[in-house]
């Protein structure tokens, strides 16, 4: 199933499964800049060289055509691709206005159990240090 092809450049990148909390070790097989398969990490103490259906086959979404490729702003009820600058300026101006009018606690952040530690740290720092609220929570609550 996962065989490294002879032609082209093949790399194996060691990482951790993105699905449940077990945290199995696995290698992403990368050929010519595309992920073509997954191999279990036999040295990982938790999964010891085995994976489940999601670990082996749950990576195809990465290359799905429906991935978001550009910031979008809803204009007249229709999503319109915009530049990062425009999207961030739009969000920043609205957030600042709401904070000024209704105070920091008029903002709430849903953080992510799917993103990295670093990203979650930065997210809560944004809520607490930039917006000035403790309204930050995520689905660990659920």
């Amino acid at each position: 199933m996962v065989s490294c092809s002879e032609k082209g450049r093949t790399e194996r990148v060691l990482t951790v499964c993105p699905y449940c909390g077990t945290g199995c070790g696995l290698y992403l097989v990368v050929e010519d800049g595309r992920i073509t398969g997954v191999e279990p990490d036999s040295l990982h103490p938790v999964n010891e060289g085995e994976l489940c259906i999601k670990g082996y086959f749950g990576y195809q979404y990465i290359e799905d055509d429906r991935r978001l490729r550009s910031p979008l702003i809803k204009k007249d009820g229709k999503f319109t691709p915009v530049s990062w600058d425009e999207a961030l300026n739009f969000a920043a101006a609205r957030l600042a206005k709401i904070k000024q009018e209704s105070g920091p606690d008029a903002f709430a952040l849903f953080a992510s159990a799917r993103a990295t530690n670093e990203e979650n740290y930065v997210a809560q720092k944004f809520a607490r240090a930039v917006m000035g609220t403790n309204n930050v929570d995520h689905c660990a609550r659920l």
Binding site: M1, L51, C52, I53, Y56, F57
Partner: peptide, 12 residues
Amino acid sequence: LGCYTCMAACVV
């Protein structure tokens, strides 16, 4: 475990 990994591997 009834985890379906075998079935998906078969399909692929």
